[in-house]
Amino acid sequence: MLILGAGQVRQALDGAESEVVEAVRQAYRLHERGLTELPHSVFLRFPDSARNRIIGLPAYLGDDTPVAGIKWISSFPGNVAAGLERASAALILNSMRTGQPEALLEASVISARRTAASAALAAATLAPAGPQTGVSLIGCGVINFEVLVFLSALLPELDTVTVFDLDRSRAESFAARCTARLPGLKVTVADRVEDALAAHRLIALATTASTPHLAVESCRPGTLLLHLSLRDLTPETILAGVNIVDDADHVCREATSLHLTEQQVGNRDFITASLGEILADDGYRRDETALTIFSPFGLGILDLAVADLVRRTADHLGLGTRIPDFLPG
Results as ranks from 00 to 15, higher is better:
I293C: 02
I301G: 06
R51H: 10
E236D: 11
F174C: 07
V245Q: 01
P212H: 03
A206M: 03
V142W: 06
S173M: 08
L224K: 00
T207N: 11
R10Q: 15
A153N: 09
T179M: 10
E172I: 05
P39Y: 12
L91R: 11
A273L: 05
E146H: 13
G34Q: 03
E262L: 12
L299Y: 09
V163M: 09
E106Y: 14
V149G: 06
V193I: 15
L93S: 13
A129N: 00
P296H: 10
S152P: 04
A307C: 04
P156G: 08
V265H: 09
R285D: 00
S173A: 14
F174L: 05
L4T: 13
A171H: 07
V9I: 12
L155P: 00
I301Q: 08
F150R: 02
A119F: 03
R285A: 01
L104Q: 06
H316E: 14
L166C: 02
D308T: 14
F164S: 01
A176N: 12
G141Q: 06
I323H: 08
A89H: 05
G241E: 01
A204R: 01
S169W: 04
A117M: 06
V135N: 02
H316K: 13
V135H: 02
R268M: 13
C252M: 11
L151G: 04
L13Y: 04
S88T: 12
D14W: 05
Q100F: 09
G5Y: 12
A82P: 03
T272F: 10
V42Y: 06
L327D: 01
S136Q: 11
R322T: 12
A176E: 15
L230R: 11
T211V: 12
T125W: 11
L258D: 05
L230K: 07
F164C: 03
R253I: 03
A82T: 04
H259T: 05
E277G: 00
E37C: 02
A307T: 02
E254D: 13
I54H: 06
G283H: 13
V149C: 14
L185C: 08
G320D: 05
R181I: 06
D247E: 10
L197A: 03
T289H: 00
Q11D: 14
N94H: 13
A209H: 13
G62K: 11
P47S: 01
D167E: 13
D64K: 14
V147W: 07
L84K: 03
R268C: 15
K186E: 15
G184C: 10
A119Q: 08
G5K: 15
A290T: 00
I55L: 15
L225V: 10
A68G: 07
G99Y: 13
D269N: 12
D63Q: 08
S74N: 15
D282W: 01
L228V: 15
F164G: 01
N94A: 10
Q11G: 15
L61D: 09
F326W: 14
R114H: 04
V149L: 15
L291V: 03
L154K: 05
L2H: 15
D232Y: 01
